[in-house]
Nucleic acid binder design. Sequence first.
DNA 1: GGCGTCACG
DNA 2: ACGTACGTGACGCCG
Length: 595
Amino acid sequence: MKQKSLFEEMANNNTTKKHVNEPLPFDCLAIDIEATGKDPVSDAIVGISLCKEKGIAYYVPIRHHKANNLNDALPILKEVLENQSISKIGHNLKFDILMLMQEGIYVQGDLYDTMLASYLLDPNSQNHGLEEVSIKYLNHRKRAFSDILGPHKTFAEVPLEEAIKYAAEDAELAFELKEILFKKIDSEGLRSLYFNIEMPLIFVLAEMQQTGIKLDIDLIIDLSKELERELSLLESKIYNLAGKRFNINSSQQLSKILFEELGLKTSKKTKTGYSTNVSVLEQLSIYHDLPREILHYRSLYKLKTTYLDTLPNLVNKKTGRIHTSFNQTITATGRLSSSEPNLQNIPIKGELGTKIRQAFIAENGSVLLSADYSQIELRILAHMSKDKGLLEAFQRGVDIHSKTASEIFNVPTEKVTSELRRIAKTINFGIIYGISPFGLSESLGISPKEAATLIDSYFRRHNGVREYIEKTIKDVRKSNYVITLLGRKRQIPEINSTNSNTRQQAERIAINTPIQGTAADLIKIAMISISEELKKKKFKTKMLLQIHDELLFEVPNEEVEEVTKIIKNKMESALSLSVPLEVDIKLGKNWAEVK
DNA sequence: GGCGTCACG
DNA sequence: ACGTACGTGACGCCG
């Protein structure tokens, strides 16, 4: 009964174009899609729940088993969902938008995403699920999905009576959460960050996920077979060197062999024993052949299991492409993350890295275009610290690492060797991480004392950076939070901890977060403006991936010239800083060629 | 499910 | 004396 009346109201909405003076019967609608699974590209809609006022919610079965499905519901819903004047409320709306896209429905209007709101209010929280957020803000314990699903294979098989209760509750919770969370968004000064960046980004990410990227499966499978052979040779070699067979993938068993049976010296400890990580095994390779072979084995095994053996299985049967998930509510700094598969950590180093990237290809008639920000985080540091040396370096366009080397080691720029530059580069990274003598020493393989000397000489030449760090930490001690250029907040209560380790870690976070977070804000702005421009001018170019400081596009040959200009221009002008932003653009048939 | 390890920025 | 570089995700091991 209730379902019908809502549909009547919705149908009325269709006529509002003719009666512009009549107010819409509702301007805000909470939606929640139930589907056969959680992969919006492969799975299908089972039903949609709706809520437009507190206390009343509806469930519209679309493909529910053994139910009176409302077959004509989607066309009616389409009118409402594509109505720009009706705001959509939901928890993780990117999922709903993607599911609806499969039905030819393109959601429009303002989005009030309660998951995103929860994230902006507390990016440190690991869990922004509807369940947790409802407990936190509504003190309401919602029905668990696993209880509803029970033995059923998909939600479609859950008896309608049960399904209605569950689905309708979710839409209503989102509706209620919206009131509370978006008041908080306003009072915390997060409104503009939400409406100008995170909300429009939802559409951009949805489209990127929907597009996916093409993979040369045969190449990946050939590589996997090649590694299979190489690994089996290495395996025998390792057993010979160890004098016995063991599970090479067990760091525990390896530890026994290295440190007990072969009597090699331990260096680093872990929570559970002695470390056998890269830096330890590199040290040990001087004394024995086994560690080097283990390193070789591990690197191959990693690439084979993590990439070669999994990527082919993730090629979507319908689209023939790989569709990652871009997560907007995971990182504490404001970055995106990518999962299932993670396409933000595809290997790049070495011959094998190149070979793997060669398998990510453009469609026939198109090329891949990679656009990456050059030294974005150091430029942001220059802007925020107003350090004279850094500002001048970027304004003059010099090689920043060489300049740092020249300063620290007191040699003319022409005499900076690649070794000195490498050290300077590590220091520059270290500054952004919230440098510590120990951290730098570990990374450079020198003593903490030597590291401290290097840090000291850096700060002697960069007073602005030193003062910026000191002021940032001082401010955080009072406010307990840091903020990015676009107003993204991260609480750091540990800044006043009595435990010095905890406190120092908080200080490093306080330095790093505004820099990493502002870079994240920046590229998000660029993504939105590029996406708008491509849409406006009706280009067929597709944005495929974001890898923190890089965007990857698939560009039809005939669009390359124009689109290159747009991308470069939009990225370089996304924010106006006191240093120029530089973007490098490269083209190629595959992802290896664009580097 | 925690841990160690290692792929990326 | 302690134990640290910042931010992620995925794999295999082990209990």
